[in-house]
Design a protein around this nucleic acid. Structure first.
Length: 429
DNA sequence: TCTGGGGTCCTAGGACCC
DNA sequence: TCTGGGGTCCTAGGACCC
């Protein structure tokens, strides 16, 4: 039976308020009461703002150098510390699992909760309890939105952000839909907002009431599903188990433009190595490798060159040596002198589980490969990432770094790994 | 000077086949 | 003068999400 036919299904969405900023503040009391922003990799853009920096007018995604100096001075910046955020995220999920039979970890700061089967009169009370427990046990404030579908739960959550209680329920006939901006509906982005506006669809209520066939033919099946969800008809089920990855990507914007082929090759090798580590940590192997290199799109006066190339392996592999050589080969074929490269990435495609190894008649499985990779992974696990690496990544023993490569990423405002590194555990006197 | 990273899904169009 | 019709597979690009 599909969710569409389940009567009285009900879903909640728990979402940490200003999550990254809240995590930083929960570990560093000095930050409390001050405007805090979290910066993207390379310390380039603002990817999270707390309430105070929102009030100061810092826009989401703003390049830090574009924030007026008098505003910038008031803000404490932190480099994104995903290891820390991921750890807190896992703790919040555990708390929710202790309260509800089924949850879906939707993103690092959001969890869907299945309320089906729980009496409706208890929904908001349980949501409030979850919220209180998360705050007490992790220090992270959050809101909970409730509705008959994921889209309405998302919408409720957004509404809850401006309430004191932090818990809101929205049913399809709620008058709030008539004033709720369509751009804030889950699945409606900038482009769709503009097109919908031209068609006179400005609110969630307008979208829910639009002609089904016109909407389907003008905007496609995705928005048609969103419409049904707003009408209370579920089109997206709760996914308790993470679906298998289809792609694993590692890419970076370089600290400086790269002009030399040697340096570009080192960067590509580093990304390939990291991608393979991620691959093996999930017991996966890849049958395809995709590499891209890009010039700086913000330098409008320069000729742009943004090639990409892919390669299909004869047999799926999780061997860094093999994938590294393929990735470097692709990059080498694309490299043209005379350009300043600003960003590059390596993506592993056609992923499958290593336990479904397809035998190849003509190639014996290299047993040594597995053993070598295991030794590398275990060493890096035990002594820290980067303890062992490949020469082509310009890897150097830890603590003996000669000079930082031009493409290394800036993270000057990083908070300590409070929860994931023994040496950096928080001290309480 | 300085502008994130990592994903998914859908669609259109071309190649190829019968 | 007059140009088939489906089907599949693949890829590139667009849109969205956090």
């Amino acid at each position: 039976m599909s969710a569409q036919h389940q009567p009285n299904s009900s879903i909640a969405l728990q979402d940490g308020n200003n999550f990254y900023c809240s995590v930083e503040a929960s570990f560093d009391p000095k930050l409390r009461g001050k405007p805090v922003c979290v910066a993207s990799s390379g310390d380039g853009c603002v990817i999270a703002r707390d309430a105070l920096s929102k009030k100061l007018g810092v826009p989401m995604g703003a390049p830090i150098h574009q924030i007026p100096p008098e505003v910038r001075r008031q803000i404490t910046f932190r480099s994104a510390n995903f290891a820390l955020y991921g750890d807190i995220s896992g703790r919040i999920a555990s708390i929710l699992r202790g309260l509800f039979p089924a949850i879906e970890e939707y993103s690092i700061d959001e969890n869907f909760i299945d309320l089906t089967g729980i009496p409706v009169r208890d929904h908001e009370r349980l949501a409030a309890e979850a919220r209180a427990r998360i705050l007490k046990w992790t220090g992270i404030p959050s809101c909970v939105g409730i509705g008959p579908t994921k889209t309405l739960a998302k919408l409720s959550n957004k509404r809850a952000k401006s309430t004191v209680e932090g818990v809101v329920t929205t049913m399809p006939d709620d008058p709030a839909l008539l004033t709720y901006p369509v751009e804030d509906v889950w699945g409606v982005g900038r482009k769709l907002t503009a097109r919908l506006g031209a068609d006179g669809i400005l609110t969630a209520g307008d979208l829910a009431a639009a002609d089904v066939d016109t909407l389907r033919s003008r905007y496609g099946v995705v928005l048609a599903r969103t419409q049904r969800e707003l009408q209370g008809i579920s089109c997206a089920e709760l996914e308790e188990h993470e679906p298998q990855r289809k792609e694993i990507m590692v890419s970076r914007t370089f600290g400086k433009d790269i002009t030399s082929q040697t340096e570009l090759m080192q960067a590509i090798a580093t990304f390939a190595q990291r991608a393979c580590e991620k691959l093996r940590s999930r017991q996966l192997q890849a049958a395809g490798v995709w590499v891209f290199i890009q010039t700086n799109p913000f330098k409008h006066n320069l000729t742009q060159y943004n090639p990409s190339k892919s390669f299909r392996l004869l047999m799926p592999s999780a061997d860094t040596r093999e994938i590294l050589m393929v990735a470097q080969g692709l990059a080498k074929a694309m490299f043209r002198p005379g350009y300043g490269y600003k960003k590059a990435g390596v993506s592993l495609l056609d992923l499958s589980h290593t336990d479904v190894q397809q035998g190849d008649l003509f190639a014996g499985i290299d047993q040594r490969s597995k053993a070598i990779m295991e030794v590398m992974d275990r060493t890096n696990q035990k002594f820290g990432r980067g303890s062992m690496g490949f020469a082509s990544t310009a890897w150097r023993p830890r603590g003996k770094t000669l000079e930082k490569p031009a493409w290394s990423v800036k993270r000057d405002m990083l908070s300590p790994a409070y929860t994931t590194d023994w040496k950096q555990l928080i001290r309480v006197r």
